[in-house]
């Protein structure tokens, strides 16, 4: 049983970390310095790029817009997915496997396929350019994902727990909220993480369903890219900042995340 990593792992981690290091490096330098010279260490590191982002309302409103629809989406996904995942993991019913497959096929479907009708649908019901529109559109893949992950975690809780609670005379809702949910809180954490992540990173639908008032941060970033005379330092700083919420969420679920991957359900 090996307890020390192979040298290859160190090599691979260098490959993983160098591009991220470069992003951080650029985010601490001003544009003239970046374009002027190539240096492995920022000669005069400053947080000016970060200050620029925090003081510019376009960037900050982008962040707030993104966080709003991601939060709405995560809440909706979790609320509808919990009872469904419980039903799938504990009962057999007519068409269960086919239903499960149909849900999964939505997680795998390319968002580009839904682009055309989504634009028409949300315009028709007057939700275009609102946080709710993006949140609902992202439910297309976050809800199936949530059901898929939660079902995996629930299936690993032995059924005897359900039966014991029934013998002890607990009501169904007491069992579900006070015994069962705490037992799978790791799974709920992983689910929140992935709903958050997939909604946070999605660009195509978020860009198509928003105009000026709900413009998300990912779109603000691509606009900066396409404009002439890009401020690379600010772009790098924005990149670093968009990584942070994910890191914060992953910090809370770090002990359960590997199990989520082990279930093969991401």
């Amino acid at each position: 049983m090996r307890t020390r990593p192979h040298w290859l792992l160190y090599l691979y981690c260098v490959y993983l970390l160098v591009p991220i290091y470069w992003l951080i490096n650029l985010s601490l330098r001003d544009n003239a310095d970046i374009l002027g010279s190539l240096s492995a260490l920022p000669s005069d590191p400053s947080f000016a790029n970060y200050l620029e982002i925090f003081s510019n309302p376009v960037w900050s409103s982008g962040f707030i817009n993104s966080l709003s629809y991601v939060a709405i989406n995560t809440v909706i996904s979790l609320l509808v997915a919990l009872p469904a995942a419980y039903a799938f993991s504990r009962y057999r019913f007519v068409g269960d496997r086919h239903l499960f497959f149909w849900l999964l096929s939505n997680r795998m479907a390319p968002p580009a396929v839904f682009l055309l009708p989504f634009f028409q649908l949300y315009s028709a019901i007057g939700l275009f350019d609102t946080h709710l529109a993006v949140a609902l559109a992202h439910c297309l893949f976050t809800v199936p994902l949530a059901v898929w992950i939660l079902e995996g975690f629930m299936a690993s809780i032995p059924r005897s727990l359900d039966e014991m609670a029934r013998i002890d005379g607990h009501s169904r809702s007491f069992f579900f909220f006070r015994i069962f949910l705490p037992a799978i809180r790791g799974g709920i954490g992983v689910t929140v993480f992935f709903c958050f992540m997939f909604s946070w990173v999605e660009l195509l639908l978020a860009r198509t369903l928003t105009g000026s008032s709900a413009k998300p941060i990912v779109v603000v970033m691509t606009r900066t890219v396409s404009a002439s005379g890009v401020d690379w330092g600010v772009l790098a700083a924005a990149g670093v900042l968009t990584i942070l919420p994910g890191l914060a969420v992953v910090y809370f679920v770090r002990n359960h995340l590997v199990r989520g991957f082990a279930l093969g359900r991401v």
Binding site: I76, L79, V80, A81, P83, A84, Y86, A87, F88, R90, Y91, R92, F93, V94, D96, L99, L103, N106, A109, V113, F114, L116, P117, F118, Q120, L121, L136, A137, C139, L140, V143, P144, V147
Partner: peptide, 29 residues
């Protein structure tokens, strides 16, 4: 355990995914 009442648990997911997947797919067709 066989129990078709479990459909009630699945219903919210069905409604929300039907809204965001079935209607758009029909429209695309």
């Amino acid at each position: 355990m066989r129990d078709n009442r479990a459909w009630l648990g699945v219903l919210p997911v069905l409604l929300i995914v039907a809204f965001s997947a079935v209607i758009p797919l029909m429209t695309v067709v």
